[in-house]
Amino acid sequence: MSGGAQVKSRWLPWHAAAVFCFLYLPIVTLIVYSFNGSGVGGFPPRNLTLDWYRMLFADDAIWTSVLNSVLVAAAAMAISLTFGIPAALALDRADFPGKVLFRRLVLLPLILPGIITGLSLLMLFRAADMKLSLLTIVLGHGTALISVATTEVFAGLQKLDRAQEEASLDLGANYWQTFWRVTIPNLRLSIIGAALLIFTLSMDEIAVSFFLIGRDNTLPLEIWGRLRRGITPEINAISSIIFAFSLVAIVTWYRLRARAEGNAEGGAELVEAPVQGD
């Protein structure tokens, strides 16, 4: 920190504090009112109770949807990694016709509003006469989230020392062995990071699922259905629980990452690559 050389005004910390209040106000409200006996809203909160949590634990529909969401997220993660890792490798070390288009297509769902991805896939499944179900949601999430796997792994590849792979090949390992024993272990941080990110994004995804839903609900769609019927603190309760789980996941992940390396920049490199390249 060089200090003193930059604009330093007294309002900056206050602005930061205000932004944090703004960011956390709904989250704090959400958690506080999950314990509020007289329902959502109404100030001050009164009759603190665990009833909503009790009700939640007896609510089978919610837990079925949680299970569905976990299954979808796990399957989507498998698809995104299976295709996202080779896609990153291909962008890094292969030349083929349409590479620029391919890169753009892969990354597009990252920035495109979910509704467009969702309904164009709906058209595909309808053209293929596929019944909408959790499977169609898996395919949707898996496809949209390849972008995340690709950006994360591509960023990891930029830091990878190719000499290691070269050495492995020179020492007689074939490509398959080199891939599993050198490339993948070296990329493991990026891959774990991508996997966690994909899992959470899929758990939370609603715009794509909204169009691809069959009879079985994922958790966000179950919540959505209930919100349309009227609001109950049960939704606060399940959201608070999931928030707690996410917090544990983030802390674990950062511990892991901090232990392995100082800082990683996420996916900025892949997006910036064309600026230097073409």
């Binding site: 709904p26 989250i27 409200t29 959400l30 009112y33 959502v40 809203g41 959470t200 758990m203 939370d204 609603i206 966000p220 919540i223 959505w224 919100l227 609001i231 939704i235 959201s239 999931i242 928030f243 996410s246 917090l247 996941a249 983030i250």
Partner: peptide, 13 residues
Amino acid sequence: WVSYLVRAYAWKT
């Protein structure tokens, strides 16, 4: 990490 939908709902409450 808090669901987008849930945060929108929180603003509603």
